[in-house]
Design a protein around this nucleic acid. Structure first.
Lengths: 232, 232
DNA sequence: TATTTTCGTGAAAAACCCGTAAAAAAAAGA
DNA sequence: TCTTTTTTTTACGGGTTTTTCACGAAAATA
């Protein structure tokens, strides 16, 4: 049986060393990342079992890291942060974090919470390896890099366009209702959001089709209901 | 969709009221238990989705409650306790608790952690995606994709046509009265709706028959009563 | 069979929804 | 600050969808 692998995302060397030596002495394997970019890449390439994430990273905000990971991976994320405000905790948890510890934290508690997470993973034993990229026809989404390609040619998407595409991709083949989509992206569903949604769909389709050779229809409209990504 | 049911195990009336009123205002259902015995009974008989557990109960020690529950149930347990020692936390977590909050706790944080737990429960349920579909003769309805096939060739239906077909399919073999159908689709039943219904039936039949090889009659008219989908 | 009622059908009218462009507002970078 | 990018708002045209209506066919009733 393999050791549980833990990705430690922390730029403060002292804290990182504290964590890694603790993990070492408790029979864990670990990987390190000093910033958000590396963290995202490590999650997609090394596929750790659990992620320990500091929120105060030099490049990307920790919350954004969580959100981006959650576009394609369900890997448990335990946040370890100096931010002790309630709103920070709530933001992190609602963005997709599984647990939240505030610095200074008890090493023993961290280990206990790791065990809780491991227990849950074991009972799941859901051995479907999550793919860090999505392919459909000529399109490819590289989740770790946050970039999209048509025929290995990168196309630039704005944040919302990217989110939208990920949402459709994750539910490829299924019809997503207007309200489901607007809720997923804006958190609420006003009529004005649906109007915006149409605009985004238009630009997204334009960008996808422009690079596509065959006249493939990636996104299909379901009148009065919503949209669907076709499996090609 | 049912509300999430939460068992609140807490003997301190003030704290309990704080929690239950909070749950009330956030669309949760709750059950109460004042001691460990009642809690164990409630978990087995009422089958709550989540348990909020105070450790300082009058009869059984909270840790023991956790251990005994874990003999036969995996229900998520979130501990809310005045004990703030690390060892207490670790004992509770290692005994099978899923999370641990110390009093005084932030109501907002509690809600956020409840949402985390709910998220996990939801993803557990959806792990086996039964892509529900309906088959009858050469026809197939893929509900998730919102599309209809005749001999694995997709046919385009307008929203009402699709709704109508789903309604007939769901009650395949049964005669549906005019008023039942118009009520299901328009919410009310005017004479004009029945007139429309005839038109929709005509186009629907036309679309189904056009692709069908054998002259199968999917929809049968019952004069003066309504329509029925034949089982083929 | 004759009469009445109910259905199916085609076509036109009305209503509706969607895509699109363009401008305004907001956010992000330089 | 100014510029650039991104998001939101608004309005309109066009195509699809729904509704209405008229008339002939089919079925039920007597």
């Amino acid at each position: 049986m393999n050791k549980t692998t833990i990705l430690v995302v922390e730029d403060d060397i002292a804290v990182r060393n504290l964590i890694t030596t603790t993990l070492d002495t408790h029979d864990y394997r670990y990987i390190r990342a000093e910033n958000g970019q590396n963290a995202l890449q490590a999650i997609s390439s090394k596929k750790p079992d659990i992620v320990l994430l500091d929120l105060g990273l030099p490049d990307i905000d920790g919350i954004d890291v969580i959100k981006r990971v959650r576009n394609w991976s369900e890997v448990p994320i335990i946040v370890i942060s100096a931010r002790c405000e309630d709103t920070d905790k709530i933001d992190a948890l609602d963005s997709g974090a599984d647990d939240y510890l505030t610095k200074p934290f008890s090493v023993e508690e961290l280990l206990a919470r790791l065990r809780v997470t491991q227990r849950r993973l074991a009972s799941l034993k859901n051995s479907d390896p999550e793919d860090s990229e999505f392919r459909n026809g000529e399109m490819k989404i590289d989740y770790a890099a946050g970039s999209v390609f048509i025929n290995s040619e990168e196309i630039h998407l704005t944040p919302i366009e990217y989110k939208l595409l990920c949402l459709l991709a994750k539910n490829s083949g299924k019809v997503l209702t207007h309200t489901f989509i607007t809720n997923s992206i804006w958190g609420s569903s006003f009529d004005s959001d649906v109007a915006s949604l149409r605009v985004f769909m238009a630009t997204l389709r334009k960008k996808l089709d422009k690079s596509s050779k065959s006249g493939q229809q990636y996104i299909q409209t379901h009148v009065g209901v919503g949209y669907r990504m076709n499996k090609l």
